[in-house]
Nucleic acid binder design. Structure first.
Lengths: 194, 194, 194, 194
DNA sequence: GATGAATGAGCCTTCATTCAT
DNA sequence: AATGAATGAAGGCTCATTCAT
């Protein structure tokens, strides 16, 4: 335990430890004791930083969703063409979901989030969709995508394909993803199945 | 409580009640008492049909996954062209997931499934992928899809897009899906984004 | 299941089955279902003959204690000398306890016997002591035992030694008892240790 | 609740409380809540010291049996003659069994002791018999007891008579034991009934 | 009368939370 | 501020008892 860690650093340590423990054990299976141990602190100390297990979970969710949103934005911005951008999104999704897949699943089924957090979650989710939506709009404006493309549907195709691919590899077939895999996805998405 | 229900009918009633309760409350949040109440029977009676909560969950999973696999197969078989088939898959997915979405999410993160059930689950998942895979192969053979299409990727694009669409509508935007929505998805998938 | 069994015979069958099950599983461990199965009847049928588990246990206790008292009396009466009589008691004790040892232990710690049954139990116990007491008195009168012998203590020595011997052989050292063992006990009791 | 109690003291407190509760209610009748209340602590706290009810019972058994064995040894060692020694054993038995009688009965019918504990129990029982056996051997060597005495039988007579006496007084006739009672037992044992 | 499916009170055990140190 | 021993509410499961057939 680093004595000199600031309150904020300590809080982040707990947050990250908690993500690992929630991911491994699910919400109800994640005992506060595990989280404390994972963070290398005493059980009571967690309560110095987060008032309850529910609240801790909510903070994690916020933290993760914010990081995802921000990371996705960067991934998109660092590409020039729509192809590069989708490729970047793919890579970012894989990287992020490899670390947070389980956690995101847990998050999705939690019904008892506080109104505040639920609102935040919805808001950030909307922001994420917005990132994709803008990307698609720009590409349409540039002529990279056909002008009559249904933007919403396109978005879901991209997101869904990427996510499905991550899931398959994560749960069923743990081959490491290679560059050609990313290329193949983008290829199918852009050219269609025909 | 229907007095005349056979043992098998009663068991199915409990199964269905349990799906609803697990979906609503998650695995740990689903109290056996809720399940019993939902099925309109006493708490102890559930144990006459399923030896434990874990075992009950496993049976549900088997039941649901089998029904999904079978339903998907039928959906595919009832279409002639690849377009019709994907449309049917879409409709079936929406219908099924509307009823079982939450439950399937719960199922995905359960780590402590028995070896037997885990094996069954993986096997049925493989069968499901096989249904999609065959559909794509046939369509390639017929010339409906281009011959150089990466089948695995195509499969993930189709599954992912459909699922993503269901999820979006389920969680975020509960508009009922219309026929034009299905058409739009198939259109994007088949024609590509370009 | 013998259809023609009279109500009384059926009741005795259940009683005997219950003794076996209580002996094997203890009071709380003895499920009514086991007892029914052991008696070859349905669970509900037990309740046609005994109104509750507690009542059934009490009836067994009565039954057993009566049989013990009666058997002991016969064993004593069939001997002429004090030596023969103690030998007979030994043999009877061994035989009876081999079949009812566990059950008697269970009986001893049951605190919640009804007043009525507790009274009966005490009464029969007193009768048993009386059998021994009379035996000793008669032997004193005959000059077989010394006139200054403390009758109560003598009784406890006889009962205790016999019982201890049975217990040892039952729990720790399951050699079958032989005639010479009985002789040795009587010998020590009558001649003293010195 | 003594705040300053060490972990070990607290554990012993629970042990002793549990002996009382098991003695009063039997194994299955002894609710963990009663034990906690008897020890003056919360229900959950018992589990900080003993992992389960079964384990707690086993620990008590070990504890009691060890104390009995040790106490008996001391009782014997503090006597010079065989008479003194048997007197000491009597007094010790009465004292110990007055406090643990019920518990020892419960212990005897527990079938599901772990192998380890069962082995320990048997071992200590053997040690106890050994204490008696040695006492008798020494007395024979000293000429206090006759040389042709069957040691095993003698042992059972002594143990049985003492125990029977305790039981009688405990269950049926709660007069306090007086010195002359002890004397009478030893007298009968040593001089024989004749 | 005989049955066994259904019932729910009751108990062992877990774990989020508190609080004295 | 940090800790972890103590707590008790809550839930999975058992089984004596009931009652419709």
């Amino acid at each position: 335990m680093v004595i000199t860690a600031s309150r904020e650093e300590r809080q982040t340590d707990i947050l990250k430890a908690a993500i690992r423990v929630f991911s491994e054990h699910g919400f109800d299976g994640a005992k506060m004791e595990y989280i404390a141990k994972e963070a290398g602190i005493g059980k009571g100390t967690v309560y110095e930083y987060f008032e309850s297990k529910d609240r801790l979970f909510e903070e994690i969710l916020k933290f993760s969703v914010d990081r995802y949103s921000q990371g996705l934005k960067e991934a998109i911005d660092q590409g020039k063409t729509i192809e590069e951008r989708i490729l970047n999104c793919s890579r970012f999704n894989v990287e992020f979901l490899n670390n947070h897949m389980e956690f995101m699943h847990i998050a999705m089924q939690i019904k008892m989030l506080s109104k505040e957090i639920r609102a935040h979650h919805m808001a950030v989710h909307a922001v994420i969709l917005e990132h994709y939506s803008e990307m698609i709009k720009e590409a349409k404006a540039n002529g990279e995508l056909r002008p009559d493309l249904n933007e919403e549907i396109a978005m879901f195709c991209i997101i869904g394909a990427l996510e499905q691919f991550c899931k398959q590899r994560f749960y069923m077939d743990p081959r490491p993803l290679e560059e050609k895999d990313y290329q193949a996805i983008v290829d199918v998405l852009l050219r269609g199945l025909k």
